[in-house]
Amino acid sequence: MENLISKKDLLEEANISYGQLYRWKRKNLIPENWFIRKSTFTGQETFFPKDDILLRIEKIKTLKDDLSLDELADMFSPSPTLTSLAAEELTKRNIVSHTAVEMYNNFHGPTHSFSFNQLLTLYVLNSLLQTGDVNRTEGVDLLKLFDEHAQSTKNSESELIFIRKMGVSFFILTPEPANLLLEPQAKKIAHYKLSQCMEELKLKLS
């Protein structure tokens, strides 16, 4: 079971008021499916997935001085903000590394302008390479996976998990929320929520 936080505890922990929470909900900054209703001894109470909501509120609070609530909503929404970006722009603005673009080009052939979904693939590949979680051949596996399942990454509500056991590695792409139970020798190397990657990417692009 996912770690949940009650509305009351959330307001206290994040130091916000009921009014703010409702306003952000109205502006679609907090997704509807995060509001989980449960019966308790004091009647109906609302709970939230703890890590997700605290992270989201932290982001809203730090960004709300620079961006309007509507701009923030665009950032958090699962639909892409821009249609395409030129290849030179990408490395020039330091959005992804040169290596990642090169690997992408080797796999797909030279690409001059990237769509948002291609950018997302690049971004995930780049982060995995940067952290050293995957090597180059595994990176190609990732590109293959994203290429074959382009449709399922499009609606962003999926998670990417990278597992290694005794030197053998593989990727899993699964709808959110993923609850995987692993055997002891298997090691979860990386776990990405694509919706969060998308937010980070949008922030970098804006």
Binding site: S17, Y18, G19, L21, Y22, R23, K25
Partner: peptide
Amino acid sequence: HCEAKEIGGEN
């Protein structure tokens, strides 16, 4: 008789 299941807001 006015009715709403839940009401939330600032004021």
